[in-house]
Amino acid sequence: MLTDEQRAVYSRLADVLIPSAEGMPSASEADVPTKWINDALGYRPDLVPAFLRALEIGADGEAEAAVLRINSTDSVAFDALGVLTSGSYFLNPAIKELIGYPGQVPSPAYDDTASYIDMLAAVVERGPIFRPTVT
């Protein structure tokens, strides 16, 4: 679990990565630093050390410069920061709805052969394209 201080640092960094723009909320507006990052860190405990390194490197100074500093000094830490922040954002059902992504929901297979069978006739008409066995 993040300390209050770490969470404050992370909130500033996360909003640089995912700002409010293009009609979409920022990371903090989407509850990433306060809620979803907790879930994401639980799903990816292997990324926790690199993520915490990113927070240490980015603790001081203006947030945009801090993000650039993390990327230039520790690309593994930046990867962890990026994956966990993006992943947390997309865990939020409200974000999924805004981007039109239903998530991995059941969508039973169906037979759509009729929609392309006429197109396939042209493939068949072009004839065989294999080299037969040499005997």
Partner: peptide
């Protein structure tokens, strides 16, 4: 899905994948 498109960007320009 949306996350599958975005991994391994460490070292690349930040604004290529993030920000707006």
């Amino acid at each position: 899905g949306p996350l599958g498109m975005r991994s391994g960007y460490g070292g690349r320009p930040v604004d290529e994948s993030f920000g707006v």
